[in-house]
């Protein structure tokens, strides 16, 4: 895209964001009239809210202040139910990495095998087709019952949801390696290991990376829900805990952070995918 076009799109983005803030700000302005409030109720929800001057929905400024607080001290620990947002999100990232990494360790070699053998491809296919559409959270009770540990169970759920896209893409990528490259390897009497690592792996790498990118996206979606279920730590738990505290500002901060981290994870995988992609 030419430079002027990029500038225009950036300006438009800023404009849209400003408009969004303005509407949000307008919608959360305190209404003019004062209402008599029950003193007990006023004590509970704060005098401004009780008198109808302010809703529980925070204004952009409230959220900005909250964000600044979190940014200043993201890693504090004040007891099990009051830990910094940075710590919570680190727990979540750690679980996603662990579950995703384990899934990659299983899916890529297994996908390689399935992709190389049409017999295995057909034999595994019905299982993959049935297991793939199952919501990963449906495994949660089974995981809790067998593993008997909530943290490990959430990692298992991440594992199971990251598995399928990587497995399917690896098998597809490996089975779709161009016949002529394999023929080159055959005429050169290349050993099976060398063929796997020097021909098939680089040829299938872009497809494998696409599978990994899809997997990490799904894993990041699922971890929030999983942590809401099992509780304890993590950004999903943080969101649910703040809902119980009725701190919408904190929830909004967490939502923003979840989006940011998700974007970063996706971008990392996109970079890696670009690094192994070859133009033909």
């Amino acid at each position: 895209m030419p430079r002027s076009g990029r500038l225009a799109s950036a300006l438009l983005s800023i404009l849209m964001f400003a408009l969004f803030l303005a509407v949000w700000h307008g919608a959360t302005l305190p209404s003019g009239g004062t209402q008599a409030a029950d003193s007990e109720y006023a004590k509970m929800v704060g005098s401004a809210a009780a008198s109808g001057q302010k809703t529980a929905m925070p204004s952009p400024k409230d959220v900005a202040v909250k964000l600044w607080e979190h940014a200043k001290d993201p890693f504090y620990v004040r007891g099990t139910n009051d830990q910094g947002i940075g710590i919570q999100i680190s727990y979540s990232i750690g679980r996603v990495m662990l579950g995703f990494g384990l899934a990659a360790l299983v899916a890529i070699p297994l996908g390689f095998l399935i992709g190389m053998s049409p017999l295995l491809y057909r034999a595994f296919d019905p299982f993959i087709q049935i297991l793939k559409p199952i919501s990963p959270l449906a495994w949660m009770p089974l995981a809790l019952y067998t593993i008997k540990d909530s943290v490990t169970s959430s990692i298992f759920v991440i594992f199971i949801c990251s598995l399928w896209p990587m497995l399917i893409n690896t098998a597809f990528g490996v089975s779709a390696v161009r016949r002529e490259w394999l023929n080159v390897a055959r005429t050169l009497e290349v050993t099976p290991m060398r063929k796997a690592f020097r021909v098939i792996l680089p040829a299938a790498a872009p497809t494998i990376m696409t599978g990994m990118r899809i997997s990490v996206g799904i894993a990041w979606l699922v971890i929030i829900a999983a942590e809401m279920l099992v509780g304890g730590t993590g950004i999903g738990y943080f969101v649910w805990n703040e809902w119980n505290n009725l701190s919408i500002s904190n929830i909004l901060c967490a939502i923003l952070l979840i989006g940011l981290v998700g974007m970063v994870l996706d971008q990392i995988l996109a970079r890696l995918a670009r690094a192994v992609t070859y133009p033909e």
């Binding site: 161009r178 002529e180 490259w181 080159v184 021909v199 680089p202 040829a203 790498a205 192994v276 133009p279």
Partner: peptide, 10 residues
Amino acid sequence: FQGHALMPWL
């Protein structure tokens, strides 16, 4: 080979 069959990543 007819279609050169070079490995495009090398």
